[in-house]
């Protein structure tokens, strides 16, 4: 039986690469999409060589709305699974003062990812099958001074995925929300992250694979985060506003 292809939106990221390898290892053909597809060539060869699956590379810019439909039309076939790992953290200091920087973070974490998944959702619904995977963040569960611009955009994305799942729940189309806590990637390279709470990109990929293979709608990467965020959400605002988290 041939397996359906997986489309990776944001394939140059560490998490995107890891997810591509994880699904390829299970025999899924891979469509890699990123802004500079020529930079994906090395990954294409690597994934094809290691896992013996078809791999193709495609130019995709999450913020170029006009390009979304031609991009989807240009894929070798409509994928069976689409994973969106597009995101941009930026520097909170800068995001707080420079609205151009803030806008780019908001658009990159919410507008772009939501829009491309919406288009895919409609195509999947029309076809009557497919799985959408959105990699959001626990940062979206409560706004904190240290990264609320990024967090608020992720909150929007998380809410969007939840709504989309609700809408599609009577169709065969699945929507999976992945909520990593800290992940050791390029984006977090200069941050001091506590090791017990920090996942490797491979763990995120494994969590995504297990969510896909199982039936969960929302998965935290490192389960401890579900507990941590439950506590953080439960803190009353008058107290929370004075915390430094």
């Amino acid at each position: 039986m041939t397996k359906p292809p997986i489309l990776i939106l944001g394939a140059r990221s560490d998490i995107g690469r890891a997810i591509a390898h994880r699904f390829a290892a299970e025999g899924h053909p891979v469509q890699l999409a990123a802004r500079a597809p020529e930079a994906l060539e090395a990954d294409r060869a690597d994934i094809a060589l290691r896992h013996g699956v078809e791999v193709s590379c495609h130019a995709f810019d999450a913020l170029d709305h006009a390009g979304h439909e031609p991009f989807l039309d240009g894929l070798p076939e409509l994928p069976g699974i689409a994973a969106c790992v597009v995101g941009l953290m930026g520097e909170q200091e800068e995001n707080a003062r420079d609205m151009d920087a803030a806008r780019l973070v908001m658009r990159s974490n919410y507008e772009g990812p939501a829009e491309i998944l919406a288009r895919l959702a409609n195509r999947f619904e029309a076809r009557g099958s497919g799985t959408l995977i959105g990699v959001s963040s626990v940062a979206g569960e409560r706004g904190r001074a240290s990264n609320y611009v990024y967090g608020s955009a992720k909150a929007g994305f998380t809410a969007f995925l939840s709504g989309l799942r609700n809408r599609l729940s009577r169709t065969p189309v699945r929507v999976i929300t992945v909520l990593p806590g800290f992940v050791a990637t390029r984006m977090t390279e200069n941050m001091d992250l506590p090791a017990p709470l920090t996942a490797a990109p491979l763990e995120v990929a494994e969590a995504v694979w297990r969510a896909h293979a199982g039936a969960r709608d929302v998965v935290y990467v490192r389960r401890i985060w579900a507990l941590i965020m439950a506590v953080i959400r439960a803190i009353p605002e008058p107290v929370f506003k004075k915390t430094r988290l």
Binding site: D14, A42, D43, A45, D46, L49, R50, R186
Partner: peptide, 9 residues
């Protein structure tokens, strides 16, 4: 660790 691709066999 990020330069970890196989190129050809």
């Amino acid at each position: 660790r990020r330069m970890n691709r196989m190129r050809a066999f």
